[in-house]
Design a binder for these strands. Structure first.
Length: 110
DNA sequence: TGGGTGACCATAG
DNA sequence: ACTATGGCCACCC
């Protein structure tokens, strides 16, 4: 039953991502540390985010800034629409200027 | 019990 | 630069 622990942790971190920024699955996993793999982060979001619209799951992408999780949203364009409405530029499912948009919890949240 | 799968990532060839 | 592979760990047959 430890799954509830890390899923809660993941959600808490995602909530802290500022608008106009984004982070990666691996960055969250690394920040939380606890034997949590990047696959688990994606898995948690797939399970929880689709049910709970309270968290900005659209601000979590893969390490390359690609919107690999867009299919889990109500519509395939929903994730991109959200990010663009927050001031980000997206082209071909990739966040432009990714290196500056990237928000690393291990650093920013220290 | 065991194998396949996934919103991933790092490394090797 | 691109593909392959292994590791990661919970979930679902």
């Amino acid at each position: 039953m430890g799954n509830q622990d890390f899923s809660h942790q993941v959600i808490e971190v995602v909530k802290l991502i500022p608008a106009g920024r984004a982070t990666s699955y691996g960055a969250i996993a690394k920040y939380l540390g606890t034997g949590l793999s990047s696959r688990m982060v994606g898995w948690v979001l797939k399970q929880k985010a689709s049910q709970i619209a309270q968290i900005p799951a659209h601000r979590v992408v893969n390490r390359a800034g690609m919107l690999t999780g867009k299919h889990a949203f109500p519509s395939p364009t929903f994730m991109q629409e959200c990010l663009e409405s927050e001031g980000l530029s997206i082209e071909n499912d990739g966040i432009q200027n990714w290196s500056e948009v990237f928000w690393d919890p291990a650093i920013e949240l220290a």
